[in-house]
Every structure is written in structure tokens, then in C-alpha cells.
């Protein structure tokens, strides 16, 4: 029991240690503004990573999330700019774009899922392929440049990222809501138990009358929806999308999931761990920006060391 507790607490301990380091590095770290920046910033990777927790728990992997985010952002911007001529109500336009975003996300997830389960291609290859496809599509849509949201529309929509409720930015609330829903779905429903079962041993799950293909496909659709939600709060931040949008999000999301204690080989997943993992990744970047004690050239090395140590904390002692 003791060991299990330590394992569960690992990511939280790492988070606290990094937080304390932050406090010592710069007094500005604890300012309300900085803390709210960190939370809002981690919500993108965090929400994507919650979806990834399902995929990875079930024994899959999705490398396409970063490009998918860029592609959905591009579609939303083009759609909203286009609808400006048809509709007068800006709120209606934004609402339609949000719906479209969810539809594209779910559809993209469905494609990944079906190619993995029905066409029996390894998830790594399928999503590596779709990763390249979405990235090129957004570059093509933007003509190699950047798609920018209409200025008036951007002004209204920007409230979604910059607005606050009870002192916390909206993205943080969305992140929290997605985390709670994810927790309930993974830990308190039949679907969640099926995810664990399929990830542990696919054959056994199949003999136990679990529709393995359906469970796996559902996790990719969930992942697509999570990417769409992240995109819905990402677009109002800068009102633009380009070939650079969401670059390396897939690796950050996977790192957040693993730091949080989910097994990369599947069979075990933890939503709160993932949330902590996303916070840790954002904190490292933030603290490095708040100090000049570390050479710029070494930022990547510091991040690498902390990620490895954080995972060691929850795996090393058995």
C-alpha cells in the first residue's frame, strides 16, 4: 500500500519541488499574473494530453495531434472569415465555428481509429501519416504564410482566451472541466474499464467479449475532440494559424501523460497525473524564462533532465 502511495504521489512531489524552485528563482514567479499565465498556457497541452491518456492507456499512440490542432485552427479561421459575409451575428459565427471544430476533430479521430482497427495499420504509422497530411494541408491553406482571423471577429472571440471567471482565465476552467470529465470516464465507467483491459491484453479483452475495435476507435475520437477543444481556446489567443502552429504538441502531450504515471505500453492510465504532467512541462519553460542563471543554449537539456527525473520518481523505486 505504501509503495503504491509513493508511486501515485511521484508526479505531485515533482510538481511541488519545481514550484519551490520557481519561488526561489524569481519573486515574480508567485505573482497572480504569472500563475494565471502558467495555468492558461498549460491548458492546451493539458487538454490534448487528457485525450492522449485514453489512447495510450488503450495501448495506442497518436502523433497527429499537433498537426491536427493546426489544421482545425486553419479551418476555423477560414470558416469564420467566410461566414462574415453571410451572417451579422458574430456570436453565431463563433458558435458555428466551434461546432465545425468539434465535427472535424471527431472525424479526424475516427479516421485515425478506423485506419488503426479496420485497416490494421500500426497506430504509429497511421498517425505519422496523418500528422504529415494535416501539417501540409494547413500550410497549403495558408499559402505558406499565416491565416489571420478577421479583426472585428477576433476582438469578440479573444474574450474566450483572455476573459476570466472568479479570477481565473476561461481556458483554466475548460481544462478543469475536461479533466473532471476525463477522470469520471476513465475511472468510473464501463468504457474506462474496457480501456484498461484492452491496453493490458488485447486478446484477453477480446475473449472477454469486449468490442476491442470499438473501444480503440472511441479513444481516437475522444482524442480528436480534445484537440478540437484545445483549438477552440487556442485560436482566440493570437487569432492566427500557420504551418508552425502546434508544432511538437504531440511529444509534449505524450510526455505529460508519461510523467503523470500512465504506462506507455498501455494498461494503466491516470488523468490527474496527466494534468500534473502538463503543469510540470509548462512550469519548466516558465522558470527558464524567469532566470538567466541557465544559458539559453541549455534550456532543452534542463527540460530533458527534469522529465527523466520526474518519471524516475514514480518508477524508480519498486
Amino acid at each position: 500500500m505504501n509503495k503504491l502511495d509513493l508511486k501515485t504521489a511521484g508526479p505531485f512531489i515533482a510538481l511541488i519541488v519545481i514550484f519551490v524552485i520557481g519561488v526561489f528563482v524569481n519573486e515574480a514567479f508567485l505573482s497572480a499574473g504569472n500563475l494565471s499565465n502558467i495555468l492558461a498556457r498549460s491548458s492546451f497541452i493539458g487538454i490534448v494530453a487528457i485525450g492522449a491518456t485514453f489512447v495510450i492507456t488503450t495501448g495506442g499512440i497518436d502523433l497527429s495531434v499537433g498537426s491536427m490542432a493546426a489544421f482545425i485552427s486553419g479551418c476555423m479561421i477560414l470558416l469564420m472569415n467566410g461566414l462574415m459575409e453571410t451572417f451579422d451575428s458574430l456570436v453565431l459565427i463563433i458558435f458555428l465555428a466551434v461546432l465545425a471544430s468539434a465535427a472535424i476533430g471527431a472525424l479526424a479521430g475516427l479516421v485515425n481509429g478506423l485506419l488503426t482497427t479496420k485497416a490494421k495499420i500500426e497506430a504509429f504509422i497511421v498517425t505519422l501519416g496523418t500528422m504529415g497530411i494535416y501539417r501540409s494541408l494547413v500550410t497549403y491553406m495558408a499559402d505558406g504564410g499565416t491565416l489571420s482571423l478577421n479583426f472585428t471577429l477576433g476582438d469578440v472571440y479573444s474574450e474566450v482566451y483572455y476573459g476570466t471567471l472568479l479570477g481565473l482565465p476561461y481556458p483554466v476552467w475548460v481544462f478543469l472541466a475536461v479533466a473532471i470529465l476525463g477522470y469520471v470516464l476513465l475511472n468510473m465507467t464501463v468504457f474506462g474499464r474496457h480501456c484498461f483491459a484492452v491496453g493490458s491484453n488485447e486478446s484477453v479483452a477480446r475473449y472477454s467479449a469486449i468490442n476491442v475495435d470499438r473501444v480503440k476507435t472511441a479513444t481516437y475520437i475522444l482524442q480528436g475532440l480534445c484537440v478540437s477543444i484545445a483549438t477552440i481556446i487556442y485560436v482566440p489567443r493570437l487569432g492566427s494559424a500557420s504551418g508552425q502552429t502546434g508544432i511538437l504538441w504531440e511529444l509534449e502531450a505524450i510526455a505529460a501523460v508519461i510523467i503523470g504515471g500512465t504506462m506507455l505500453k498501455g494498461g494503466y492510465g491516470r488523468i490527474w497525473g496527466t494534468v500534473v504532467g502538463a503543469l510540470i512541462l509548462t512550469l519548466i519553460g516558465n522558470i527558464l524564462n524567469l532566470t538567466d542563471a541557465v544559458s539559453n543554449y541549455l534550456n532543452g537539456a534542463v527540460q530533458g533532465v527534469i522529465v527523466i527525473v520526474a518519471v524516475y520518481l514514480q518508477r524508480g523505486r519498486r
Binding site: G33, N37, N299
Partner: peptide, 21 residues
């Protein structure tokens, strides 16, 4: 001085941190 990788998102994040600091 910090690297912002010639993109908007990193420009936003790095500047937020400069402004806090």
C-alpha cells in the same frame, strides 16, 4: 534575451514571462 523560435506562440509566451519578471 531568450529564444522565441521565430514563431508567434513562443513570442507570446516569452514576452508574457518578461512582463511578469
Amino acid at each position: 534575451d531568450q529564444y522565441a523560435n521565430w514563431n508567434r506562440d513562443d513570442g507570446f509566451t516569452v514576452m508574457q514571462d518578461f512582463l511578469s519578471r
